[in-house]
């Protein structure tokens, strides 16, 4: 079956599913709320901070900041992703789809294509919002500066895709949304515990840091490091307390490779599980 057909099958299922539509609309509404950050003012010690004036919407920093902020809302879409597969089990429609002539690979592909489309749409939305905010608030708007660091959009896309593929696999594994999402949260804690054990119990910080590059969730996290130490306010506070805040070095290429590898692993594990299981 063609890619377009597979995607249209999945979109048809989503199009009429009210909860999914509400969650998707809610997600894009929340993404739009990033623009409201521009109005935030607060006091930090003796320093009055107006976020919009701290350069958060300056090109190219805005790509980093906005993708990082947008990532907080990923869980919204994760609920949709996990329910797209667990519902197929609870309605027993996965079985019926196969009886109607879809192969297991086609079924999985239709889901994965939807995940890719949703990740692309979210990335595109963040791109549009960032571009508009940047053009309004940025001190620098030359095309060279605008396009630099746009790779954060790719990082954001890959992080969404990776997280969704992991959650999708868990949905397939547990067949219940609550179990899948619960396990996902448990796994987050597990990676933290493993990191702590490597750091405090077995080795040291350097080894723990390097090992965490290969943990699935941490590998996605490394694609979008926190952007706050790059803020002018943070640098200013750093100077006041005598700390040197380092210059951002960019995201090493191997983080992308590791994340892509996990995405492929989750795809194959899902396919393996689907093929192995009787329905």
């Amino acid at each position: 079956m063609q890619i377009r057909k597979l995607l249209s099958i999945e979109l048809y299922k989503i199009k009429h599913h009210r909860l999914s539509k509400i969650l998707i609309a809610g997600y894009f509404l929340l993404l739009s709320s990033i623009a409201m950050i521009a109005s935030i003012k607060f006091k930090l010690g003796n320093t009055q901070i107006h976020l919009a004036e701290q350069g958060i919407f300056n090109f190219p920093y805005i790509w980093h900041f906005n993708t990082y902020m947008a990532d907080f809302f990923t869980f919204f879409l994760a609920i949709i992703i996990v329910s797209t597969i667990t519902n197929e089990y609870s309605y027993r429609t996965l079985k019926q789809n196969l009886i109607d002539g879809m192969s297991k690979k086609e079924f999985l592909l239709s889901k994965v294509l939807f995940i890719i489309l949703l990740s692309l749409l979210a990335t595109f939305f963040v791109f549009i919002i960032s571009l508009i905010l940047g053009l309004i608030y940025s001190d620098y708007t030359s095309s060279g500066i605008i396009v630099s660091e746009m790779y954060f959009l790719f990082s954001f896309f890959l992080k969404l895709l990776g997280t969704f593929m992991f959650i999708f696999f868990l949905g397939l594994l547990f067949r219940r949304s609550a179990f899948a999402l619960g396990f996902f949260l448990l796994w987050l804690v597990f990676e933290q515990i493993l990191y702590s054990l490597i750091r405090w119990q077995w080795f040291n910080e350097k080894v723990a840091e390097k090992a965490s590059w290969f943990f699935p969730i941490a590998s996605f996290k490394h694609l979008l490091p926190q952007p706050f130490t790059r803020l002018s306010a943070a640098k200013q506070i750093g100077k006041q307390i005598g700390e040197e805040i380092g210059r951002f070095q960019g995201i090493p290429f191997f983080h992308f490779l590791i994340a892509i590898s996990w995405i492929i692993v989750f795809y194959w594990l899902s396919l393996y599980l689907l093929r192995r299981r009787d329905l």
């Binding site: 299922k13 009429h16 599913h17 309605y91 027993r92 429609t93 009886i99």
Partner: peptide, 12 residues
């Protein structure tokens, strides 16, 4: 084919 019980999307 119909196997055991009808399987459709309840919200459609």
């Amino acid at each position: 084919a119909i196997i055991e019980r009808p399987n459709f999307y309840p919200y459609l």
